[in-house]
Nucleic acid binder design. Structure first.
Length: 742
DNA sequence: CTAGGGTTAG
């Protein structure tokens, strides 16, 4: 190959001559002048050097320079080799540059060789201009088999089924006998169940044409059955295939993944490894997806090892699902490691890592990475906004959330179900059930997740009857319900004390999970039916988890049932000895029934195991700025005004019927004001008189502060929303939306 | 000269 040889020698000459200047010279960084001045190279044909330069430019994606140089060659009548044109056109295809593609097409000589015309045709298809492709195709003096393949493949690839079939018939009229490639292309366009019949017909034609022993052909048939939703047909066909390759295996794995049979997908993967099939990046994409879905850490790590062995970790198509796999395994560190291995991460890779940060709870990181990606002009997608909405939900940051919403609208990245559902949750968690409703109502056809998000939003805001109405509407609309929907509706019942309704919903479930049992435990516990709750845990077919016992313990605390409470605490600490909530609840319960010895014992154990109670804090966002308060806080710049306001509204700590435990006493003694009162008072002085005050607290509000909220809403006429760790409380005119039941 | 499979989510 003279061309290659010349390029190599050019390279070595350049690097030898300028070793000092070009320490890191590599193949793609050869300066353009190098090939121009080298008259002393052994050139055999006129223009060979120029052609090499042209090819070099196009291989470096320098289309503009290449085109300029092409014009230069034309001007000096230097012959341009067909191969050079081919490479130029390929670069146009790769970069999807219709503009240069057209320019180069126009610059072609009068009678270009047939294969070059096919290259132009391919370029138009690759650049997505099927109109140009069709025009050229119709005007082509000599169509080859390749031309037909290109045009049919383009139609099929774009989903233009009719055009593809028409061309298929037309080619037969022009006496071209379709080859396997034609069928492979055509089969590709039958990609949904409504095309099954025509797909089968095409399969018959394949058999009649005698292409039954073609691996690629068979993979395409398999794929057609998979995409048309007939995995069983695909499997039968697959098992009859004599020869199988990566593509056919990958196709089957995709089919299994679609049918959520991820373990079957992995079985195919194992077979592929056993049979020593050459694996490629596509095979690993789907394998990792299955590992992620199953959270099969072991399998995923083995796949990762194999990937490393084959050096495929730098491929986006492998690295991205690898990131997702580690995210699903809740191992962000490995996810970040996998991400950093990717050579050219795309927006999918970025959204996978953003999702990782948000799922794991590193909200700060998530939002910062998103912001820098955005400011650097990176490609953004809707998945990213979903993660951003999750962060805003977690921060309960309405200001950031609505900004993100606006930003997403501007970029046209919001009108899709997932993002909208995340938005419902975001607005609800920011305390704006009204906005959540608006987001929900703006959806044309809410799906399972959207309905569920809306029901959960009502549940958390204590709107049980609205939740139930929505649930009925959802049923009537025919949208499928899932386990999460039932968690939402049971939560709604639980927050409103609707025991019978909850029992009804629960009974209507075919296979409740531990989450649903725990919801029922919560329903009974809150309603004071502690015996029922305890019996339910004891009798359920699933093993109780920490949540089961914690929920029961919470109920025992509210209803002062020391006996069951102790049993629950023992069980809870058996499951998770480091659960601070268990100790705190147990301590409070012992203390409030005057068992100081036992209470002190609980504290001692806590200290021994160095379990620390989470300290309470409340915050309020005013004009986009978050103001945070802790118990008895005096650090705020307007602290004096805050305390003065508290005096003014006149609902002091002493007046309440406080919890009589030791903690409560200490607090009383020290006259420390609970953080949520400080935040509410700040809201009163810092926001306009008519606007609602929305306060957030990391722990549950106590009864005294709950009464305080009611009192202030009556006194000032303001609407006050308090979100504690459990739910939302809407205080208006001295009443709370929870009906004092929570 | 012509083709086939894949990854992100509430």
């Amino acid at each position: 190959m003279p061309t290659l040889h010349l390029l190599n020698s050019t390279f070595s000459q350049a690097s030898m001559l300028h070793a000092d200047k070009f320490q890191h010279a590599n193949f793609t960084k050869i300066p353009s002048w190098v090939s121009l001045k080298s008259n002393n190279f052994s050139i055999t044909h006129r223009g060979e050097l120029e052609n090499v330069h042209l090819v070099s430019l196009s291989k470096q994606d320098k289309l503009k320079e290449a085109h300029d140089y092409l014009l230069h060659m034309h001007r000096f009548n230097i012959p341009v080799a067909p191969q050079s044109y081919k490479l130029l056109l390929e670069t146009c295809s790769k970069l999807k540059s219709l503009k240069f593609g057209k320019l180069i097409h126009r610059g072609l000589t009068e009678n270009p060789p047939d294969f070059l015309v096919n290259c132009v045709l391919e370029m138009y298809c690759a650049c997505g201009s099927l109109s140009d492709a069709r025009k050229l195709f119709d005007e082509m003096p000599k169509r080859s088999m390749g031309s037909w393949v290109i045009i049919i493949s383009a139609y099929a690839g774009e989903g233009l089924l009719e055009d593809a079939l028409e061309s298929y018939l037309r080619m037969q009229e022009s006496n071209f006998k379709p080859n396997p490639y034609i069928y492979i292309c055509l089969l590709k366009s039958f990609s949904e169940s409504s095309y099954l019949e025509i797909g089968k017909q095409m399969h018959c034609r394949v058999i009649k044409a005698g292409f039954t022993n073609n691996v690629a052909m068979n993979a395409a048939v398999c794929n057609m059955y998979v995409k048309c939703g007939h995995l069983d047909c695909a499997e039968r066909f697959f098992s009859l295939m004599q020869e199988k390759n990566v593509v056919s295996y990958t196709t089957m794995m995709v089919g299994c993944a679609q049918a959520k049979r991820h373990d079957d997908a992995l079985r195919y993967f194992k077979r592929m490894v056993e049979e020593d099939v050459d694996l490629d990046e596509f095979a690993f994409s789907i394998t990792l997806k299955a590992c992620a879905a199953l959270v099969d850490r072991k399998m995923g790590e083995q796949a990762h090892a194999l990937i490393f062995k084959l050096g495929l970790q730098s491929e986006v198509s492998v690295g991205t699902p690898l990131v997702d796999f580690y995210v699903k395994c809740e191992d962000v560190e490995s996810a970040v490691g996998a991400f950093e291995e990717i050579d050219e991460p795309n927006d999918v890779s970025w959204s996978a890592i953003l999702c990782g940060y948000s799922q794991i709870g590193d909200f700060e990181k998530c939002i910062n990475v998103f912001k820098s990606l955005r400011s650097e002009g990176g490609v953004l997608n809707r998945f990213m906004y979903t993660s951003v909405f999750q962060v805003c939900s977690a921060f309960a940051d309405l200001s950031m959330g609505s900004q993100a919403h606006g930003d997403a609208i501007k970029r046209g990245l919001v009108s899709y179900l997932y993002g909208e559902s995340a938005m419902i949750t975001m607005y609800a968690k920011c305390g704006r059930l009204d906005y959540a409703y608006r987001a929900f109502e703006s959806m044309d056809a809410p799906d399972t997740v959207a309905w569920t998000a809306m029901i959960a939003a009502c549940a958390h805001h204590g709107k049980a009857s609205e939740a139930i109405t929505l649930f009925r509407e959802m049923q009537a609309s025919g949208v499928r319900m899932n386990g999460v929907t039932f968690v939402a509706i049971l939560t709604a019942c639980s927050h409103a004390g609707l025991v019978e309704e909850a029992e009804q919903f629960f009974r209507s479930m075919s296979s409740p999970t531990i989450d649903h049992y725990n919801c029922m435990v919560d329903v009974y516990s809150r309603a004071g039916l502690l015996k029922e709750a305890f019996d339910l845990i004891k009798g359920m077919p699933l093993e109780a988890d920490a949540m089961s016992w914690k929920t029961l313990l919470g109920g025992c605390r509210i209803h002062q049932n020391l006996e069951i409470g102790k049993a629950a605490a023992d069980e809870l600490l058996g499951v998770d000895p480091r659960d601070a909530a268990a100790y705190v609840l147990l301590f409070n319960m012992q203390a409030s029934s005057g068992r100081w010895e036992e209470a002190a014992g609980v504290r001692r154990v806590m200290a021994e195991r160095s379990v620390r109670k989470e300290s309470g804090c409340s915050w309020i966002s005013v004009a986009g700025e978050v103001h945070r308060f802790v118990v008895g806080d005096g650090h705020h710049a307007r602290a004096e005004e805050v305390y003065a306001k508290l005096e003014e509204v006149g609902f002091r700590e002493e007046e309440e019927e406080e919890e009589e435990d030791e903690v409560g006493r200490e607090r009383k003694r020290q006259q420390l004001v609970h953080s949520e009162r400080l935040a509410i008072a700040y809201g009163l002085i810092a926001t306009p008189p008519a606007s609602p005050i929305v306060v957030f607290k990391n722990l549950r509000a106590c009864r005294g502060c709950h009464d305080f909220g009611k009192h202030v809403s009556l006194l000032t006429g303001r609407s006050i929303v308090v979100r504690d760790s459990n739910r939302f409380h809407h205080f208006t005119n001295g009443q709370c939306s929870c009906g004092d039941y929570w």
